[in-house]
């Protein structure tokens, strides 16, 4: 806060602001400060509550820092087989799905960026059409059923890995970052498409590859509806489906607790367990996020180029 006041003072010295500009600044800054608090506090509260004594949580206390520090919620979370199974499955689906999706997207995006490919314009139009119109839930379900992909891990990896939007983002990136002259020069030197792609396009496309990997990985990590619809075997469930059970369904899991006392304690701790599991499931992304933020922003910016 003090620093902010100082900077305000400095800028006021530089140019004498009129009262209406100062009023605008004040309003704008108040808005931004309030927004920051409103965004950050719920996240902070979840983190703090997960370490706080459950009696305080059940009393509905407003917290700024952990009180009655304890990790009982986390102990419960890590004792639950669903968390481990879900985590392992999610990791598997995310890693495989991202590898598959990024590869397919980059290859297609590059091919679409080339202007000397007859027929690619029509194909692109066919791709774009699917962004605005689709068969819908039931025909998709029947299609997948007929392919024999119901309740398979393969489907969890494939579905949602390729998106037309991402292909367009890659295409725009390649069009602006790989000049035609480069291809011409390479062709004169006797370089074929394969060599050109591997030794020139790929090294120049590290940034867009990072963007794609992150986009696809986050969407895999957070997706739950596909698993809900297409999986029946719960040992294949990703974390988000178990999260839904633990966070939103009132029927609690009593497999861990043999005696009545333990059940009672579990019920007392429901809220704490829920806060803990939110932290456990979301921490990986939010911890990495500040470091990879620039790639995400880059992706949005490239995607906004019309074309």
């Amino acid at each position: 806060m003090q620093r902010m006041i100082r900077t305000r003072g400095r800028s006021a010295n530089r140019i004498r602001q009129s009262w209406d500009n100062r009023l605008f600044d004040a309003l704008a800054n108040t808005f931004l400060i309030l927004l920051t608090i409103v965004t950050l506090y719920p996240l902070w509260f979840v983190l703090v509550a997960s370490f706080t004594d459950y009696k305080l949580i059940n009393a509905g206390t407003l917290l700024l820092y952990p009180r009655g520090f304890q990790v009982a919620g986390y102990k419960m979370v890590f004792a639950d087989w669903r968390v481990w199974t879900g985590y392992a499955n999610t990791l598997f689906y995310t890693v495989c799905g991202t590898a598959f999706g990024a590869l397919v997207t980059i290859l297609a995006g590059y091919a679409f960026s080339r202007k000397d490919l007859p027929g690619s314009g029509i194909l692109m139009k066919l791709f774009i059409f699917t962004m605005y119109f689709g068969g819908g839930l039931i025909p998709t379900y029947l299609m997948i059923k007929n392919l024999g992909l119901l309740d398979t891990r393969l489907l969890m990896i494939l579905q949602g890995s390729v998106s037309v939007h991402n292909v367009i983002v890659v295409r725009s990136f390649m069009r602006t970052n790989i000049p035609d002259e480069l291809l011409d020069a390479a062709t004169i030197d006797g370089c074929g498409n394969g060599t050109f792609f591997m030794s020139i396009v790929m090294p120049l496309s590290k940034a867009i590859l990072a963007v794609m990997v992150l986009y696809i990985a986050v969407s895999h990590w957070n997706s739950y509806f596909n698993a809900l619809i297409y999986l029946t075997d719960r040992y294949k469930y990703p974390l988000q489906v178990f999260l839904r059970q633990i966070l939103l369904q009132t029927a609690e899991n009593h497999e861990l607790a043999e005696d009545v006392e333990a059940v009672m304690e579990m019920q007392q701790m429901v809220a704490t367990i829920r806060y803990s599991i939110i932290v456990v499931s979301t921490a990986p992304i939010l911890c990495l996020y500040p470091f990879i933020q620039k790639y995400f922003v880059k992706g949005v910016m490239i995607g906004s180029v019309k074309g």
């Binding site: 590869l103 080339r114 066919l126 791709f127 699917t130 068969g135 299609m143 494939l158 890995s161 792609f197």
Partner: peptide, 28 residues
Amino acid sequence: NWLLYMFLLPAALYIAIFHYGPMYGLQI
């Protein structure tokens, strides 16, 4: 540029199976 068509193939298959397949099935 035959190789570039190979590059497009996986994505085209994906779109065909997961988007156009259901559109065909929409007649139900």
